[in-house]
Design a protein around this nucleic acid. Structure first.
Length: 455
RNA sequence: GUGAUUGUAGCUCAGCUGGUUAGAGUGCCUGAUUGUGGUUCAGGAGGUCGCGGGUUCGAACCCCGUCUUUCACCCCA
C-alpha cells in the first residue's frame, strides 16, 4: 500500500467549516479596511531574494524560505564554493528567489516601483499568506495569513489615532475583547540616549520585551549579563517598578528632559492617547506599555501590539510607524505607518473562546429528497427557480433510502428537507419538513420561494 | 538553529517489568423500519501500533535514525 500522504511541518489543511469561519474573520477585517478608506493590493508569493534579505535582521534572514534556482546550478559552482562549507555563501549562489516573510517589505517594494502611479498618501490593505521557516508551536506556523493596512506618505499623527480606531472596530465586530498596547520607539531611543547605552540599544529592547515573561528581576539579570552599567540598570529598574502607566510616564518625563528625541516620543504618545480618548473606543483598551519593544527594527515612532484579554496566545496583531521604510529601495522621506492582524491566531482565540456567531456560516436551506428520475427532474426545475430567487438548495443525487438522505441533511446543517414524490407531483405542491422542529407543511409549487424567504 | 516531548481503529484514548489472536467509548456500514433522520435493539467492517533499521526465541513496549505534534530557548503573527 502507498504510504499515507502528509503535509509539511507547520502547514495545515482547512476543511469546510474552518474555511467558513476564517472567511468570516477575513470579511470582517476587509470590510473595516474598506470603511477606513484602504484599497486592496496583492503581491507575488515570492520575491527576488535581494528584496527580502537584510530587512529583518540576521535572525529574520535565517527564517526566510529560499527557492532554489531552476536548472542545473551545480556547473556554475566552483570546487571552492563547495569546499568552503558555508551555507550562507553557498546559498547566495544557488538561490535567487524567496517566499515573502511578511507583507510590509513587499509593500515597500511595491510603492517604490509604482510611485508614479500612486496617489499619496497611499492607503492600502493586503490579505495574503506569508512563510517563515520557524519551528512551529501552538499559534506559530510556517505558513500563515497576515492582514495588513498601511499608509505611506503622511507623517500625521492622526494616522496613529485612526489605526487604533481600526483595531477597535475590527475586534469589536469580531466580539473579541482586546488590549492595544502602545509605546513609542522614540521614548526607548531617548532612554538609551539619557542613560548612554545607545550602543546596546537592541539588547536593551530585547530584554525589555521579555518583562511579562521573566519579570523585572529577569530583565535586570539579563541586562547585567549583557554588561550594562550598574547606574543604567538601576535607572531602568526604577522605571520598571512604576506601579501604573501614569506613574511610569511621569518618571519618563523626568528622565528624558534632556533628550529631544525622548520628549518628542512622549509628546506623540500623549497626543495619540488624548485623541483616542476624545474620539472614543467601542470596546478596546488602550494602554501605554513601556516594555513593548517589537522585534522589527524599522519602526521609528509609535509601536502597537494587540493581545486578547481572555486567552494567552501571544500577540494577535501589531504594527507601528516607520519613517523611512522605502529608503532601502531608493525612495527617501516616505513616512509610513501600518498595522497587521494575525488571522490564524485570531481564529485560535475565537475558536477556543467559542465566540464565532452561529449564523455567520452560510447554509443550504433546503434538500430535495430523491425519489427517482421523473421526480428528480421536477425537483431540479423547482430548485432552479429557488436558486434564482437567492435560496441555496440542492437535490440529493441518488435515489437511496430516506434515512441516508436525512442523515446527509442533518450532517450538513440543512434546515429543511423537501418531499417531492409522485403524490406531490400530482398535487403540484411539496411537503417541506423542518428538520430541527419536525414540523411538516404542504406548500404549493408557486409559493415555494415565498415560503423560504419568509422562514 | 539548541534542548525536551508526542504518535495505537475515522475521532478520543486504554494497553502491567518485552510474552499467545492489540482493547474501550464514539463514529461508520447492514438489518429491525423499501415515503419520514437524530432514540432503541441486533449484527458487521475497520489497526503493516508514524516510518525505517537494530537488539531478542519473541517488540506497540528496549536501542538508533527519520518524520510529525506539543513545550522551553531564540524569535515572532
Amino acid at each position: 500500500m502507498a504510504q499515507k500522504p502528509s503535509i509539511p511541518k507547520g502547514t495545515r489543511d482547512f476543511g469546510p467549516e474552518v474555511v467558513e469561519k476564517r472567511q468570516f474573520i477575513i470579511n470582517t477585517i476587509k470590510n473595516a479596511f474598506q470603511h477606513f478608506g484602504f484599497a486592496p493590493i496583492e503581491t507575488p508569493s515570492f520575491e527576488n531574494i535581494e528584496t527580502l534579505t537584510g530587512k529583518y535582521g540576521d535572525e529574520g534572514d535565517q527564517l526566510i524560505f529560499k527557492i532554489l534556482k531552476s536548472g542545473d546550478f551545480t556547473n556554475k559552482l566552483t570546487d571552492k564554493d563547495w569546499a568552503e562549507k558555508s551555507h550562507t555563501t553557498l546559498a547566495n549562489k544557488i538561490v535567487d528567489k524567496a517566499l515573502r516573510y511578511d507583507l510590509t517589505v513587499p509593500f515597500a517594494r511595491f510603492v517604490v516601483q509604482h510611485q508614479n502611479e500612486l496617489a499619496f498618501p497611499f492607503k492600502r490593505y493586503q490579505i495574503q499568506p506569508v512563510w517563515r521557516a520557524d519551528r512551529p508551536q501552538r499559534g506559530r506556523f510556517r505558513e500563515f495569513y497576515q492582514c495588513d493596512a498601511d499608509v505611506v506618505g503622511s507623517d500625521s499623527l492622526w494616522q496613529e489615532v485612526e489605526f487604533v480606531q481600526l483595531y477597535d472596530e475590527v475586534f469589536t465586530k469580531l466580539g473579541l475583547s482586546i488590549t492595544i498596547k502602545m509605546s513609542n520607539r522614540k521614548i526607548l531611543a531617548g532612554i538609551a540616549e539619557s542613560l548612554d547605552i545607545e550602543d546596546k540599544f537592541i539588547g536593551f529592547t530585547v530584554a525589555l520585551d521579555k518583562l511579562d515573561k521573566i519579570g523585572v528581576d529577569g530583565v535586570l539579570a539579563e541586562l547585567e549579563k549583557n554588561e550594562f552599567s550598574k547606574s543604567s540598570i538601576s535607572a531602568i529598574a526604577s522605571l520598571l517598578n512604576a506601579s501604573n502607566s501614569e506613574e511610569s510616564l511621569a518618571q519618563l518625563e523626568m528622565l528624558l528632559k534632556n533628550s529631544k528625541t525622548g520628549q518628542k516620543g512622549i509628546e506623540e504618545l500623549k497626543f495619540v492617547q488624548e485623541k483616542c480618548e476624545s474620539v472614543g473606543l467601542k470596546s478596546a483598551h488602550l494602554v501605554f506599555d513601556l516594555t513593548l519593544a517589537r522585534g522589527l527594527n524599522y519602526y521609528t515612532g509609535a509601536i502597537f501590539e494587540v493581545v486578547a484579554n481572555d486567552i494567552n496566545l501571544g500577540s494577535i496583531g501589531g504594527g507601528g510607524r516607520y519613517d523611512d521604510l522605502t529608503g532601502v529601495f531608493g525612495l527617501n522621506n516616505m513616512s509610513g505607518i501600518g498595522i497587521s492582524f494575525g488571522l490564524d491566531r485570531i481564529y485560535l482565540c475565537m475558536d477556543e473562546l467559542h465566540i464565532f456567531p452561529e449564523n455567520s456560516l452560510p447554509k443550504v436551506q433546503a434538500l430535495f429528497l430523491n425519489f427517482g428520475e421523473s421526480e428528480s427532474e421536477k425537483a431540479l426545475q423547482l430548485i432552479r427557480k429557488l436558486r434564482d430567487g437567492g435560496i441555496s438548495s440542492e437535490l440529493y443525487p441518488d435515489n437511496v433510502k430516506l434515512k441516508k438522505q436525512f442523515d446527509y441533511a442533518s450532517k450538513k446543517g440543512i434546515k429543511n428537507v423537501v418531499f417531492l414524490g409522485d403524490k406531490e407531483v400530482l398535487e403540484k405542491s411539496v411537503s417541506v419538513k423542518n428538520i430541527q422542529t419536525g414540523v411538516q407543511v404542504s406548500v404549493p409549487f408557486e409559493d415555494l420561494i415565498c415560503y423560504f424567504l419568509e422562514s
